[in-house]
């Protein structure tokens, strides 16, 4: 930051408005002294300006910013956001995870950070550190009792989000993953308007038709925000069962969707297969229909629920498991799409 010699324009010297400040502003038009009301507005403008600057700086320090959204609640946004963060961190990236769900923030619980309180120093908020060094900020850190949801009215809520965005000391990050409450509400809009340089959004859906319908809305919403859709993730897609049988045995399994699935055991007699609980492939079909990328399927995994409750995310508990592998694949696809989105617009920089 350059050291400007013009001190009365330096928003970092905020506080009660000095006479210097007010003279400077009011000298514009009328020359009349500023009323208390105007003074207050000026003060607000200054702190807003300061925040905006911080946001710009922060934007430059964080290489990639990814929003995780869904049209419908409970489809696994927070699980996916946390999984993406952990997966990216496992690849050696510096990752931040921002839980913007004010009414039901549950990310700390998934990361064993329940009960953590905010660490604030000189007006800057410091994130908590979870598994693999993932830095976490959650509205839950503000609550006295995590089980009592906060009911904040719109403007207060959005103000809190802006403050959270501007006042958190993330440091240098490769990725910031932002988890939202369900639906196409004001929160994503506030974030997009406040934080420059969002790479795009990941839309989480489940294979049921109603969730897919809602994710179509999310895609439309993304388009209206002019934020690229990095892709659709189909969560709780299929259930993996395993067993043992005679070596190389051939079996038929009656799947929930009414089809018979052929399974062959390996030479040691172990077998596994992933069954579709709902109609599979809807996420992919929706993505194709809407012309956005499909990132992959994450299986229904009872361990995910347990992990969410115990504070040990599935990826941490079982880094080689189906879920962890599926997440790694999604991340690979996601990275490819981020790279593509960055180059979009066909601008060649030499």
């Amino acid at each position: 930051m350059s050291d400007s010699p013009i001190s009365h324009h330096d928003p970092s010297k905020e506080g009660s408005p000095s006479s210097e400040k007010s003279e400077d502003i009011e000298s514009g038009e009328s020359g009349a002294p500023a009323s208390a009301d105007q003074q207050q507005q000026m003060e607000q403008a200054y702190s807003q300006m300061k925040r905006k600057m911080t946001l710009q700086e922060m934007g430059a320090k964080i290489k990639h910013k990814i929003m995780v959204l869904s049209g419908k609640g409970g489809v696994g946004k927070s699980t996916v956001a946390t999984g993406l963060a952990l997966s990216l961190a496992a690849q050696g990236n510096q990752v931040g995870l921002l839980d913007i769900d004010i009414t039901g923030p549950n990310i700390p619980k998934m990361l064993g950070l329940g009960g953590h309180r905010l660490h604030v120093e000189e007006g800057r908020i410091y994130p908590a550190t979870g598994y693999s060094g993932v830095k976490v900020i959650s509205m839950a850190f503000l609550l006295d009792d995590e089980d009592t949801p906060v009911v904040w009215r719109g403007p207060i809520k959005l103000g809190a989000i802006q403050q959270f965005l501007g006042d958190v000391e993330w440091g240098e990050l490769d990725y910031l993953v932002i988890d939202f409450p369900p639906g196409t509400s004001d929160e994503p809009l506030t974030v997009v308007q406040s934080l420059p340089d969002i790479d795009g959004m990941v839309i989480v859906t489940t294979p049921q038709d109603v969730a897919l319908l809602d994710s179509r809305k999310s895609i439309g919403f993304a388009t209206s925000l002019k934020v690229p859709v990095l892709g659709v993730v189909e969560n709780m897609s299929g259930y993996t069962i395993r067993g043992t049988a005679e070596p190389n045995a051939e079996m038929k399994i009656d799947a929930p969707d009414g089809t018979m699935v052929d399974v062959v055991a390996d030479a040691d007699g172990n077998w596994s297969t992933t069954l579709d609980i709902f109609k599979a492939g809807g996420g992919q079909a929706t993505a194709e229909e809407m012309g956005v990328p499909f990132l992959g399927r994450l299986p229904f995994d009872p361990g995910v629920v347990r992990g969410g409750d115990d504070g040990v995310h599935r990826i941490v508990a079982d880094p080689q498991g189906e879920s962890a592998q599926a997440f790694a694949k999604v991340v690979e696809q996601l990275n490819a799409n981020i790279a593509a989105a960055k180059q979009s617009g066909g601008l060649e920089i030499i």
Partner: peptide
Amino acid sequence: TVQTVGGYALHFE
């Protein structure tokens, strides 16, 4: 160094 910003702008470092 030049970076694109969300498809609408450029940032110069």
